[in-house]
Nucleic acid binder design. Structure first.
Length: 616
DNA sequence: CGTCTAGGGATTCAAGTGCG
DNA sequence: CGCACTTGAATCCCTAGACG
């Protein structure tokens, strides 16, 4: 919209760039209530825009907005270029130069001349007053399109010509559509305009709270809402040592993201220092997937992590993903020399992470039980810190596994399911009670688990219904150096073991001779249970069902006696029409009316009759 | 271990809306 | 007009994580 009306009026070959430019100018904080934008800042803004021009616009955006193929070379921002921008800017009916458009007819140079009393010191003072005005405007929310003179500014400044944009234009620039409070609430727009003013650098949520002066507990919800509605991009990051988010207007979101930003330097001094954990994990896994086995130093170097806090962060990530089974910390012998048995701390790739896994890590409060567990065991995060020499264990092979078994216990899962998961994952190897304890909840949760497992293995063949037999856990007895101990298997694993001749059913359930009867018993025992198409056993019919489960809704309603329960006006009611049961969702009113005809007292019937005869 | 920051859950309040 | 309900906003209280 903006593009079509304006591009024809610019005579140089740079109209495409200017089309984009005008958007940038409007999202700069100009609004009717503020003191506006000083023309001197125009050059700074245009330059800042072109500094990030290539970062913020990809070819697709360019093509779609201009219809011209290929990437434009950024124009040189000189005096003549600014005059062009100015000429084209002041023609726009939504742009005010001075509160009454008194400067719209002047050229850029003329306006500058008129403002010439305005020296640099005053300019800074002005900027400060303007910022305060901005904050006041944003904290109260945009309320009027009429420029407001209530904000105090030095008289001299008031006489200067400044740029204003209407609120409607700000909406178009920031949201891409006209003002619509059903799409973006006032408070959200206030946040959005601040986020927009930071352009591709984005803004940390904490800074947004401070600038907007909105309640810190409300801002995250609003930014979430803006993200869900597609106006902004919200990246969870670590910044200033805290877990927070970087917010960027969707149209300024950069395509190629970095996981590590060292903050502002040189041309772009407003850039924010942050670490994007999500991307860091992806890059780490990219490297590990490629190399399969990497020393920790190589991994650090590949990722470009240089500070102690960054190494600690990587350590935490490695530990967590090791606990979840995606990688493994190992000591590996040097491949360069077979004589020197030097082992290096390495990370071994096991399997790839999914988005879900990364989300699980980066989301707040990811498995607190596990993190508590890690800390409780007194393991520090210094794996990646220098100076920790790695002594190989005696008789170490080329690859020596490190770490320990991480219990999978979770407060949110049923214990019997966890036990089954561990036992089943061991395959036909089975698992001892001690191993089971270590895998499940750590060695300290000992006696209760022994008792629990003892109960679920006892009478396993008859304690589960046939269709749930595959969830059984079978306890077999093994002997090691004359000492008998228990091994536990899931049903399917034990079945496989029996088929391979490694175990016998009679050892765990059957007694008696292996005659014909024995084989009949075992074949019926091992047969698959009959189930319906939904997997439910066909022979099981719950008892106590009304009409054996074949009643219509009407019959149910009729058969149900509410007794003392008070029905609300919205409860469905049953009634009978021509011997058919019907349901009304219009509430008991219908039922009452129908019953009234039969049951109303004589006096009431008279009144009713009277009322019907004289409706008035 | 204490401090700070971010953020979530629960609750409360005010305004708006639909219905009888 | 009263009532029930919804929605947005504000607030209190609490926890997690980072850091010194």
């Amino acid at each position: 919209m903006l593009v079509d009306t304006i591009s024809g009026k610019v005579t140089t070959g740079e109209e495409e760039a200017l089309d984009i430019e005008i958007d940038i100018l409007f999202v700069w904080p100009i609004n009717p209530c503020s003191l506006g934008l000083h023309p001197t800042d125009l050059g700074r803004i245009v330059e800042a825009f072109y500094a990030s021009y290539n970062r913020t616009r990809n070819d697709d955006n360019l093509n779609s907005s201009t219809g011209a193929p290929g990437r434009r070379k950024p124009p040189r921002v000189d005096r003549a270029f600014l005059e062009h921008v100015w000429k084209w800017l002041v023609r726009d009916p939504d742009i005010f130069v001075g509160r009454n458009r008194e400067g719209n007819s002047l050229s850029f140079s003329e306006v500058e001349k008129r403002n010439s009393t305005h020296d640099e010191r005053q300019h800074q003072k002005f900027a400060k007053v303007n910022e305060q005005a901005e904050i006041a405007y944003r904290s109260s929310g945009p309320s009027s399109l009429v420029p407001d003179d209530s904000i105090s500014a030095p008289g001299e400044m008031r006489n200067q010509l400044r740029l204003f944009a209407t609120e409607e234009r700000m909406w178009l620039a920031v949201c891409g559509h006209p003002r619509d409070l059903t799409k973006v609430f006032d408070t959200e727009f206030a946040l959005l305009s601040i986020i927009a003013s930071k352009r591709s650098n984005g803004i940390l949520q904490g800074d947004l709270v401070r600038l907007s002066r909105q309640d810190k507990r409300s801002v995250p919800k609003r930014t979430d809402s803006l993200r869900d509605k597609g106006y902004i991009e919200k990246r969870p990051v670590l910044a200033k040592g805290a877990r927070t988010s970087i917010l960027t207007l969707k149209k300024f979101a950069v395509q190629e993201k970095v996981f590590l930003s060292r903050g502002g330097n040189g041309a772009n001094s407003d850039a924010i220092a942050f670490i994007d954990q999500d991307l860091l994990i992806r890059r780490a896994f990219d490297a590990l997937r490629r190399m399969k086995l990497m020393t920790r130093d190589d991994l650090k170097e590949t990722l470009g992590l240089t500070t102690r806090s960054q190494w600690k962060l990587l350590s935490r990530i490695i530990r967590k993903f090791e606990a979840w089974g995606f990688l493994k910390r190992v000591h590996a012998a040097s491949a360069m020399s077979s004589k020197v048995q030097q082992h290096y701390s390495c990370v071994k790739y096991l399997k790839d992470v999914t988005d879900e896994d990364i989300k699980r890590y980066t989301s707040i409060g990811h498995l607190p039980a596990n993190s508590m567990d890690l800390d409780a065991e007194g393991e520090d995060d210094d794996d990646f810190l220098p100076g920790s020499t790695e002594e190989p264990a005696p008789n170490a092979g080329p690859l020596q596994e490190l770490g320990r078994i991480y219990p999978i216990w979770s407060p949110d899962r049923i214990l019997s399911n966890l036990v089954f998961q561990v036992v089943d994952s061991m395959g036909t190897k089975g698992i001892t009670l001690t191993e089971l304890k270590n895998h499940l909840a750590g060695p300290r949760y000992s006696r209760p688990l022994e008792v629990f497992v003892g109960r679920i293995v006892e009478n396993w063949a008859s304690s589960q219904p046939h269709h749930l037999r595959h969830l059984s856990i079978i306890r077999d007895t093994a002997v090691d150096k004359k000492i008998a101990y228990f091994r536990h298997y899931s049903f399917r694993n034990f079945t496989e073991l029996v088929e391979r001749g490694g175990a016998y059913w009679e050892g765990v359930v059957f007694t008696g001779k292996k005659d014909k009867k024995y084989h009949e018993t075992i074949s019926s025992f091992l047969s698959s249970p009959a189930t319906d198409s939904f997997g439910f056993p066909v022979s099981m019919r719950p008892t106590g069902q009304y009409k054996e489960g074949n009643a219509s809704m009407g019959e149910l309603m009729k058969g149900f006696d509410p007794g003392i329960w008070v029905q609300s006006t919205r409860d469905p009611v049953a009634y009978e029409v021509d011997g058919q049961d019907k349901i009304s969702h219009e509430g008991p009113k219908i039922l009452r009316v129908k019953n009234q005809k039969k049951e109303l007292g004589a006096k009431t019937q008279q009144q009713e009759k009277k009322r019907q005869e004289n409706p008035a």
